[in-house]
């Protein structure tokens, strides 16, 4: 089957085509911190590792704290987490397999990931094998974003 992916900007195109996943919830509060994460988990299956957030004082974790806990205590050095407009983005440091996040992590809801497995795909170029792009990156008719025709599998 073919699918049409749509994006607001080119940075997002590159992120998704290289297997990145993003939370659906803007998590940073006015104090610049995320509250309520202590003891909650994000369970990555590709690359494999679980981060259990630590915020024993309950004062909240900054974006830098969250990034450090994912790659540090979570042992997920193969991941490059970051934030874009308050949304958590996670991509492999070297895009290879795509990031896969289990639906069972107790911190999923906090970041807007939901209860289903979230699977990032690293797309090949048009001459490669699926998942692959089936054409180039195109500008939307409304000139407000981009789209790519892909073959996911």
């Amino acid at each position: 089957m073919l699918k049409i992916l749509q994006f607001g900007n080119l940075r997002r195109v590159g992120f998704v085509l290289n297997g990145g996943i993003a939370g659906g919830k803007r998590v940073i509060n006015s104090g610049g911190k995320v509250l309520g994460l202590n003891g909650k988990t994000l369970i990555f299956t590709t690359p494999a590792g679980t981060v259990t957030f630590s915020d024993t004082g309950g004062t909240g974790l900054s974006m830098a704290d969250i990034i450090a806990e994912i790659v540090g205590t979570g042992g997920l050095s193969g991941l490059k987490p970051g934030f874009s407009d308050g949304y958590l983005n996670v991509i492999e440091t070297t895009p290879t397999n795509g990031v896969v996040l289990a639906g069972t992590g107790t911190a999923n809801a906090a970041f807007g990931f939901g209860k289903s497995t979230v699977t990032g795909l690293v797309y090949d170029p048009p001459g490669g094998s699926a998942p692959r792009m089936v054409g180039g990156i195109q500008v939307r008719a409304q000139l407000d974003g981009y789209y790519v025709l892909v073959e996911p599998a």
Binding site: L2, G127, V134, G135, Q138, V139, A141, L143, L149, E151
Partner: peptide, 25 residues
């Protein structure tokens, strides 16, 4: 029918583009 990618067998999609009016595809 289900359309194949451009390098598959017909029925296949060769490309998707905006129309010249830029209001559809």
């Amino acid at each position: 029918v289900i359309y194949n990618p451009f390098d598959g067998v017909a029925p296949r999609v060769i490309g998707v583009q905006p129309t010249v009016e830029m209001d559809s595809y």
